[in-house]
Every structure is written in structure tokens, then in C-alpha cells.
């Protein structure tokens, strides 16, 4: 399936139909939230996760590093715990952070993961990379703050606030699962192929580039 590089790229496109959607969680979603009850919060949460490239890139970076279904579950669970804490807590306590700065830090998490996967710590700094599980938890907390900032930009009304936050969080988890399934499938399938090493290098180099570009872009928006 993956022996022909052209087919590989085609497979990426076919497996990631959602990533071609625009990252437009905005006024249209406000209308959905105004009219749709708690389920609409689930939908908007899932949509944000599926179209939020920064979250997906970081998760893809995490999955590159780990082997085995058990480990995948472990790391994703830690990431989920991390982002759920700050998403629910931050929103409920109305903790507001600057959206550009938090997105800039999330971009750095993408850069970090690509750099770590390419053994940048060992090769450049001659040190061992920090404990991945701890880093995934920390970055999970940061991603959760980003999600919370997004949720707080919506008008949530005055009623059922906690339920709405939980519904949005549930949507995020569902979106995360929906995004992870094709990513895990693609990476695990490619691992069996001879071109995997090139794919691994290319993908993680891309994560570094994407992290830098997204970081600079968010800082540009912040300083505008």
C-alpha cells in the first residue's frame, strides 16, 4: 500500500479529509450554540479539535514517539487529563489568557515534539530529553487553556454553565478520538514500510517548521 511514494501522499490526503476543513470555529458556531442546547457544545468542541491543527500536530508528534496500543492509551489519557483540567477549571473560573500568546505556546509544543522526536536534545544539547509523560501532561494543561480561551470567546448565556463546559470538553474528546484513529492507523501502517524512516524524519522536520511558523504567526497577531 505504501511502497509508492505518490500513493503515500494520496493516502495522507484520503485519511485526513477533515484537516482540509477550515479552522473556522466562530460566529457560525455561536449561532449553533445559541440554538442547539448541550449537544451543540459537544459538536462545537469536536469541531474545534478536528479543525484545530495545532492540537492535532502535537498529538501526531506524540504518537510518532510511542509504540503499542497500551502506550498510546497511556499518553493520550495523560494529555486528556491535562487539557480537561484547564479547559473545565479555566472556563468555570473564568480565567482568561491572551489567545495569541497561548496559541504561540501551543505552537512551541508542536516544535518541541518534532525536535524531541528527532533526538534534538541528545544531538544538539547532549542531554537526555525531559520525561515525555510529564511533558505531555504539561502541554496538555497548556492546550486546555487554549481550548478554554476559545470556549470563553463564545457567549454561553447564564444557565447550565458547568454542563456546557463539560459538553464542550466531551466534544473535544470525541473530536480527538476521531482525529487520532486515522493518524494512528497511518503511522502504524507506515511503520511496516521501508520508507518509514524518511516519513518519520520528514514529518518531524515538518512539525518543527510548522511550530516555528505558527509561533511567529501568533506573535505577529499578538503584536499587531
Amino acid at each position: 500500500m505504501f511502497q509508492n511514494p505518490k500513493k503515500n501522499i494520496l493516502a495522507v490526503l484520503l485519511l485526513f479529509p477533515t484537516i482540509l476543513l477550515a479552522h473556522d470555529v466562530s460566529s457560525g458556531d455561536q449561532v449553533i450554540l445559541n440554538n442547539g442546547g448541550l449537544l451543540s457544545y459537544v459538536w462545537v468542541g469536536a469541531k474545534h479539535m478536528l479543525t484545530g491543527y495545532d492540537h492535532l500536530l502535537f498529538l501526531a508528534g506524540v504518537i510518532f514517539f510511542i509504540d503499542g496500543f497500551k502506550d498510546i492509551i497511556k499518553f493520550i489519557t495523560v494529555f486528556t487529563i491535562g487539557h480537561s483540567i484547564t479547559l473545565i477549571g479555566g472556563t468555570f473560573l473564568e480565567i482568561q489568557v491572551n489567545e495569541y500568546l497561548i496559541d504561540a505556546i501551543i505552537a512551541l509544543s508542536v516544535l518541541y515534539k518534532g525536535f524531541e522526536n528527532l533526538k534534538g536534545f541528545e544531538k544538539i544539547f547532549k542531554i537526555k530529553a525531559p520525561n515525555l509523560l510529564a511533558m505531555v501532561l504539561i502541554f496538555g494543561l497548556i492546550h486546555g487553556l487554549g481550548l478554554s480561551t476559545r470556549l470563553q470567546s463564545f457567549d454561553m448565556g447564564e444557565e447550565q454553565i458547568l454542563l456546557k463546559i463539560l459538553s464542550f470538553n466531551m466534544g473535544v474528546e470525541l473530536g480527538q478520538i476521531a482525529a487520532l484513529v486515522p493518524i494512528i492507523f497511518l503511522i502504524s501502517k507506515w511503520k511496516e514500510k521501508s520508507s518509514y524512516k524518511a516519513f518519520y524524519k520528514a514529518s518531524n522536520t515538518y512539525l518543527i517548521i510548522a511550530g516555528i511558523v505558527l509561533f511567529m504567526y501568533q506573535i505577529y497577531l499578538y503584536s499587531k
Partner: peptide, 15 residues
């Protein structure tokens, strides 16, 4: 689109 182009170029380069 830009990401996929970059990823494809990097893949062909490393491959």
C-alpha cells in the same frame, strides 16, 4: 495545503 506540500517535499528529500 502548504503543510502537505512541505511534507511531501521533505519526504521525497529524505527518501
Amino acid at each position: 495545503i502548504a503543510s502537505i506540500v512541505i511534507l511531501a517535499l521533505l519526504f521525497f528529500l529524505f527518501n
